[in-house]
C-alpha cells in the first residue's frame, strides 16, 4: 500500500482479448506497484487466468497495453521475452503437473538460475540450498524427484523455482486452490514472507476472496471479462459494492452450519435475481 506515488512496476491499460468471436477480456486496466500484491478474484471463465497469460506473453492481446517498468511488453519479441523470463515468473495451481517428473528438484531449480546467467555449479548449488531452506524444505530435497513429495511440498518447490532468480513480479495462478486448508495457510504465509524479504510483487489470481484478502494490498473483482469492483481486500469483503461480489462472497462456505444455511439461502435469492435480469 506504500509506493503508490511512484511509477508502478506493472501497469495494464485498456486490455481487450478475443478468442475467436468470444471476448474474454473487456477493457481491463490496473497497476501493481513495486513490492505489493494485487489480488484478482473471479469465478471460472471470468478471464483471470487469461490476464496472467497476457502478462507472460502466452496469449495475444487484441488491443491495450501491458507496461512493465516503463516498457511496453504487450507484443515483446521472442528474444525480449527470453530476457523478461528473469523478471517475471509464474506459479500454477496444480503442483502435480507444474514440476517436470523426470528431473530432480535440483535440476528444476537450476533452470531459471542458468537462464539468469549463473553458470558456476557451486553458486547454483548454494543458491538452491538457500532457497529450499527459505521455503522450508529438507536439505536433501535437491537430489530427489517430484513424485517423492506431497502436493504442498511440491507447491513450495514451485514457489522456490519462481523466486530463485530474484524476479520482480510473480504471477500466482490459483497457487493454493489445490491444497488442504492448513497447507494453504503455510503457502500463503510463505508468499508474504518472501515479499517482505525480496520486495517482489505478486499478481495473485484466485476464486476465493478470503484467500485473496489474506495476501493482497489491493483486489479487483472480475466478472465475465470485466472489472466490476476494485478496492483493498478488507473493503471488498466487508462492504461489497457490486451485486456480483456479494454473490461471490455468499457462495463461499463458512464453518458454522446455522450461518451457512442462512448464507446459502441468501446466495440462492441473489443468484435468482441475477438470472432474472
Amino acid at each position: 500500500m506504500s509506493a503508490n506515488t511512484e511509477t508502478p512496476l506493472l501497469s495494464v491499460r485498456g486490455l481487450n482479448v478475443y478468442f475467436g468471436p468470444f471476448q474474454a477480456l473487456k477493457n481491463i486496466g490496473f497497476d501493481i506497484p513495486t513490492g505489493t500484491t494485487l489480488g484478482l478474484v473471479g469465478e471460472s471463465g471470468s478471464g483471470k487466468t487469461t490476464i496472467g497469460k497476457v502478462i507472460l506473453g502466452q496469449v495475444k492481446a487484441e488491443s491495450g497495453s501491458v507496461i512493465y517498468d516503463g516498457e511496453d511488453i504487450t507484443n515483446a519479441s521472442r528474444s525480449r521475452r527470453r530476457g523478461l523470463g528473469r523478471d517475471i515468473q509464474v506459479v500454477f495451481q496444480d503442483p502435480y503437473s507444474s514440476l517436470n517428473p523426470t528431473r530432480t528438484i535440483g535440476q528444476t531449480l537450476s533452470e531459471p538460475l542458468m537462464m539468469a546467467g549463473v553458470t558456476s555449479r557451486t553458486d547454483i548449488r548454494r543458491r538452491i540450498k538457500e532457497l529450499l531452506d527459505i521455503v522450508g524444505m529438507p536439505a536433501d530435497t535437491a537430489d530427489r524427484y517430484p513424485f517423492e513429495f506431497s502436493g504442498g511440498q511440491r507447491q513450495r518447490v514451485a514457489v522456490a523455482r519462481a523466486v530463485i532468480a530474484k524476479p520482480r513480479l510473480v504471477v500466482c495462478d490459483e497457487p493454493v486452490s489445490a491444497l488442504d486448508l492448513s497447507v494453504q495457510a503455510q503457502v500463503l504465509n510463505l508468499l508474504n514472507d518472501l515479499q517482505r524479504e525480496l520486495s517482489v510483487s505478486f499478481l495473485f489470481i484466485s476464486h476465493d476472496l478470503t484467500v485473496v484478502r489474506h495476501v493482497s494490498h489491493r483486489t479487483i473483482v472480475l466478472y465475465k471479462g470485466e472489472i466490476v469492483e476494485e478496492g483493498d481486500g478488507a473493503q471488498i469483503q466487508d462492504a461489497p459494492q457490486h451485486a456480483y461480489t456479494r454473490t461471490l462472497l455468499a457462495a463461499a462456505p463458512v464453518p458454522d452450519p446455522a450461518r451457512q444455511r442462512e448464507k446459502r439461502q441468501r446466495w440462492r435469492e441473489m443468484r435468482q435475481a441475477q438470472l432474472n435480469t
Binding site: 523470463g85 509464474v90 500454477f92 528444476t108 533452470e111 531459471p112 537462464m115 519462481a162
Partner: peptide
C-alpha cells in the same frame, strides 16, 4: 502441462 508453461515463462 504446467511445467512446460513455467519453462516458457523462464524464457527457455
Amino acid at each position: 502441462r504446467d511445467f512446460i508453461r513455467s519453462l516458457r515463462a523462464c524464457g527457455i
